[in-house]
Deep mutational scan, measured.
Amino acid sequence: LQLFIKTLTGKTSTVEMEPSDTIENLKAKIQDKEGIPPDQQRLIFAGKQLEDGRTLSDYNIQKESTLHLVL
């Protein structure tokens, strides 16, 4: 599924993920695209901070969801 990652600067990146992927996997993919180390990334979806060990489906993240990346 395609996700949009929006940064505080207003920049939006697109990443392709599976519902079974963990937040950790997602942060690794963001690191590949943006060069931001996972330990500096905080991802927010629906007002919640996402935890590394959980999966996208745990948070009911659907295709074309927008996640907010806070550093």
Rank of each mutant, 00 (worst) to 15 (best):
K27Q: 02
L1F: 13
E34T: 15
I5V: 07
Q41C: 05
A28W: 10
V70H: 09
I5C: 03
V15W: 07
E16T: 13
T7S: 11
R54N: 10
A28C: 06
G35W: 03
F45Y: 13
Q62Y: 09
Q31T: 09
P37Y: 05
T14F: 11
R42M: 13
L71H: 07
R42Y: 11
Q31F: 15
T66G: 03
S20P: 03
T66L: 09
D39A: 12
L8T: 13
I36M: 04
I44G: 03
I61R: 01
E64F: 15
S13M: 15
F45K: 03
A28H: 12
Q2F: 12
D52R: 03
S20K: 08
I5Y: 08
L1E: 03
E16N: 11
E64D: 15
K48W: 07
L67C: 00
L1T: 04
D58I: 02
S13V: 15
L8Q: 12
T55C: 04
Q40F: 10
R54P: 04
G10E: 04
Q49A: 11
L50A: 02
E24G: 13
T12I: 15
E24S: 12
L50V: 04
L71I: 14
T55F: 08
K27R: 06
T9L: 12
Y59P: 01
L8G: 11
K29L: 10
T9S: 14
I23P: 01
T66D: 03
K48E: 10
Q2V: 15
S20H: 13
K27C: 01
D52T: 06
D39L: 08
E34D: 08
L69M: 07
Q41S: 04
L8D: 12
T9Q: 12
T7G: 11
E16M: 13
T7D: 12
S20T: 12
D21T: 05
D21E: 08
L43K: 01
M17P: 01
S13K: 07
D32A: 14
F4G: 03
K6F: 06
I44D: 04
S65M: 08
D21V: 03
A46M: 14
P19S: 12
N25P: 00
G47I: 02
L3S: 01
Q41P: 02
K29I: 10
L26D: 00
I36T: 06
V15D: 01
L50S: 01
H68T: 14
E34R: 07
Q62N: 09
T55D: 03
K11Q: 10
E34L: 15
H68C: 11
N60L: 07
T22Q: 04
G10L: 03
L1I: 14
G35P: 02
L67N: 01
E51Q: 10
L3Y: 03
T22F: 08
D58C: 02
R54A: 09
I30R: 00
Y59M: 03
A28M: 12
Q62F: 09
M17I: 11
T55A: 07
R42L: 14
R54F: 13
P38G: 08
T66F: 07
V70T: 09
T14W: 10
T9H: 14
M17V: 13
G35M: 05
L69Q: 02
T22H: 04
D32H: 11
I61E: 02
D52Y: 05
E64V: 06
E64L: 13
L3V: 09
T12W: 12
S13G: 05
D58W: 13
Q40R: 13
I30F: 03
I61L: 07
K48A: 10
L56Q: 00
G35Y: 03
Q40D: 07
D32T: 11
K27T: 01
A46E: 14
G35R: 05
F4E: 05
G10A: 03
I36S: 03
R42F: 12
Q40C: 09
S13F: 15
K6E: 09
K27S: 01
S57L: 12
P19L: 11
S57V: 07
T7A: 08
I30V: 04
D52Q: 05
R42T: 14
L3R: 01
R54G: 06
G47N: 06
N25D: 13
T12S: 08
T14D: 04
Q62L: 11
I5M: 02
S13C: 13
L1R: 03
I61F: 05
I30S: 00
K48S: 09
F4T: 12
Q49G: 06
K27P: 01
S57H: 09
Y59L: 05
I5G: 01
N60F: 08
T22N: 04
E24V: 07
M17Q: 03
F45E: 01
N25T: 13
L67S: 01
D52K: 04
L43Q: 01
G35Q: 05
Q40K: 12
T22P: 03
D32W: 11
K6D: 05
I5E: 02
R54D: 05
T66S: 05
D58S: 13
Q49K: 08
L50E: 00
E34K: 08
P19Y: 10
L26Y: 00
F4P: 02
E34M: 15
S65K: 04
Q49H: 11
K11L: 11
R42I: 15
H68Q: 11
K48C: 07
E18F: 14
D58Q: 06
L67T: 02
S65G: 06
L50H: 00
Q31R: 13
N25C: 08
Q49P: 10
N25E: 12
E16Y: 15
T14G: 04
T12K: 06
M17R: 01
H68R: 07
S65C: 03
V70A: 07
G10C: 05
D21R: 03
S13Y: 15
I44W: 15
V70I: 13
F4K: 10
A46D: 14
D39P: 08
D32Q: 13
E16K: 09
L71K: 07
Y59A: 02
N60D: 09
L56G: 01
Q41Y: 14
I36W: 14
N25I: 13
I44E: 08
T7I: 12
G53Y: 10
I44K: 05
K63L: 06
A46Q: 14
I30W: 02
T14C: 08
L1C: 05
K27W: 03
S13W: 15
P19G: 08
P19A: 10
T9K: 11
L56A: 03
D39Y: 11
H68N: 08
E16I: 13
R54E: 04
Q31C: 09
K63S: 15
P37M: 06
E18M: 14
S65E: 07
K63C: 07
N25L: 14
G53A: 12
D32R: 12
L3P: 00
T7H: 14
H68F: 14
T9I: 07
E64I: 05
G35A: 05
Q2N: 11
E64R: 11
I23N: 00
N25H: 13
I61V: 07
P19K: 08
M17N: 02
V15C: 03
Q49I: 15
T66I: 14
E16A: 09
G10K: 04
I44F: 15
G47C: 05
S57D: 09
G53K: 11
S65A: 12
P19V: 08
F4H: 11
T14E: 07
E34G: 05
T9N: 14
P37L: 06
V15R: 00
H68K: 06
M17E: 00
Q31M: 13
P19Q: 08
G10I: 03
A46T: 05
K11I: 12
E51K: 08
T55N: 06
I23K: 01
A28I: 13
K33Y: 09
L56E: 00
V15Y: 15
E51C: 08
Y59N: 02
L1S: 04
A46P: 01
I61M: 06
A46K: 15
Q40A: 09
